[in-house]
Amino acid sequence: MRQTLSLLRRSASALFVLAVSALAAAPVQAAPEVIRIGVATAGGGEPVTWGGSPGGVVRVNHWLEEEFKASGIKVEWLFFKGAGPAVNEALSNRQIDFAYQGDLPSIVGRSNGLKTKLLVVSGARNNLYVVAPTASDIRSVKDLKDRKVSIFRGTNGHLVAINVLAANGLAERDIKGVNLDTGSAQAALVSNGVDAAFGGYEWFKVRDQGLAKIIYSTRGQDPALTRQASLLVRSEFEEANGAEVQRVVDVFVRAAHWSSQEKNRDELFRIWARSGTPVASWAAEFEQQALADRNSPLVDDFIVGRYKAVVADALKLKLIRREVAVDGWFETRYLQSALKKQGLENYWTAFDAKGQPRAKQSVAANER
């Protein structure tokens, strides 16, 4: 009996030593060879880029490429004409690691089981416009009843368009909606293929060419009628590559800071103009609006509230089939770390749920 117990003890000890040795010999998680970022727009220019977001500054200045050059990690940017829905498909197929997209498509993706983390805001309070041909008799949103109207369904402008219609006594069924992407909508409007269109800053160029008129704008109205965009990461990638995720967020926060400084306004618009949208269009989009309010990376009460409201509206309108929880979705520890490292904890003003400014405070305290 004693010999048996002694043998068992020696065996257990040997197994413990082997286990410890195996753990010690286990390889450290290797850094990724490439970081792939999907952007929910076709973009423009050479190389392809986009505007309206500090992310466009990151792209044009090659800040991510510079950040990861010494580590031997390649950065790839992929642009999607199909916008948010196409980005969701790429996330589902593990073709991208990070995604820049609007609030509604990211929520649709989450409702369909996509495992992501929302890291940082990168383009807040984007305006929405309604445009019509210059000779059209359409003068207001109410005039859209029974008209053929372009709406890019599934994008962050879709839900705002529905809310704009509702604020004017109309439902989506009261118009003859046509699902067109940005380029197709412009071609359709100038050729009288549609009577009007919902869209963003891209319509200023068409207006300035004398081919369209803006009959409605959300600017200066209820902040709830604006669109939000953020940078997300696949949860699987984040869990395996936390250090690299932190470095990406650091760069996006650096870009947000640069893009929030009024002294950089003209240069910012020139950078964004490389996407094919003229400087004049950016000047019109951001007229009488503080850069810091639009380019803040903060996940404050306003942002959280807007994402929750989008969930509620999307569910009510059956754009998603089940409730989506957002409270566990925002992963702000990377943002907080970046703000602290760059001395920006109190740089931006946080907004309350109604979109009104509140006293500046530590983001770390705000997130508790």
Score class of each variant (00 low, 15 high):
227 R>E: 15
227 R>F: 14
228 Q>N: 12
230 S>I: 04
231 L>P: 02
233 V>E: 01
233 V>L: 03
233 V>G: 06
235 S>Q: 10
236 E>R: 01
236 E>D: 15
236 E>G: 06
237 F>R: 09
237 F>S: 05
237 F>Q: 09
238 E>M: 12
238 E>V: 04
239 E>W: 02
239 E>R: 14
239 E>Y: 04
240 A>K: 15
240 A>I: 11
240 A>S: 12
242 G>E: 11
243 A>W: 10
243 A>R: 13
244 E>M: 01
244 E>R: 01
244 E>Y: 12
245 V>G: 00
245 V>E: 06
245 V>W: 01
245 V>I: 01
246 Q>T: 06
246 Q>I: 05
246 Q>D: 14
246 Q>L: 05
246 Q>H: 10
246 Q>A: 13
247 R>L: 11
247 R>M: 11
248 V>N: 09
249 V>W: 05
249 V>R: 05
250 D>N: 14
250 D>S: 00
251 V>R: 07
252 F>T: 05
252 F>Y: 13
252 F>H: 09
253 V>L: 01
253 V>W: 05
253 V>F: 08
254 R>E: 03
254 R>I: 00
254 R>M: 02
255 A>T: 00
255 A>C: 13
255 A>W: 02
256 A>K: 02
257 H>E: 12
257 H>P: 00
258 W>H: 08
259 S>V: 03
259 S>W: 10
260 S>Q: 13
260 S>C: 10
